[in-house]
Computed example of a mutant assay.
Amino acid sequence: MWSDLSNKVILVTGAGAGIGNALVKQLASAGATVIAVARNEAQLKELASVDAKHIKPLLVDLTNWNKVREALATVPQLDGLVNNAGVAIIKPFEQLTEQDFDTQFDVNIKAVFNVTQTLLPKLRNGSSIVNVSSIAASRSFGGHTAYSATKAALDSLTRSLALELGARKIRVNSVNPTVVLTKMGRDNWSDPGKSGPLLAHIPLNRFCEVNEVTDAIGYLLSSKSSFVNGHQINLEGGYSVS
Rank of each mutant, 00 (worst) to 15 (best):
A32K: 06
R159M: 14
V50P: 01
G193Q: 02
S128Q: 05
T103E: 15
N114I: 11
Q77F: 12
K151L: 13
K56G: 10
T182W: 10
L204K: 10
L220G: 00
V107P: 02
K56Q: 15
G166V: 15
E209F: 08
L120T: 14
L23K: 06
A111S: 14
N173H: 04
W2M: 13
D187H: 03
C208M: 12
L235R: 09
N40G: 08
F93K: 01
E209Q: 15
T116R: 04
L198R: 09
L78P: 01
V213Y: 02
N64A: 01
L96A: 11
N84E: 00
V9D: 01
A162L: 09
A48E: 13
Q26T: 15
P192K: 00
S195A: 15
T103F: 06
Q43T: 00
H54I: 06
S6V: 11
V175C: 02
S190E: 02
M184A: 15
G238M: 07
S190M: 01
F101I: 15
S174C: 10
N173V: 03
Q43G: 00
W2E: 11
I129H: 05
Q117Y: 12
K45W: 03
L161K: 07
G18Y: 06
V60A: 00
A22N: 07
A149R: 05
T97A: 14
N114E: 13
Q104H: 10
F93H: 05
F93Q: 05
V82Q: 02
Y219R: 03
A111Q: 03
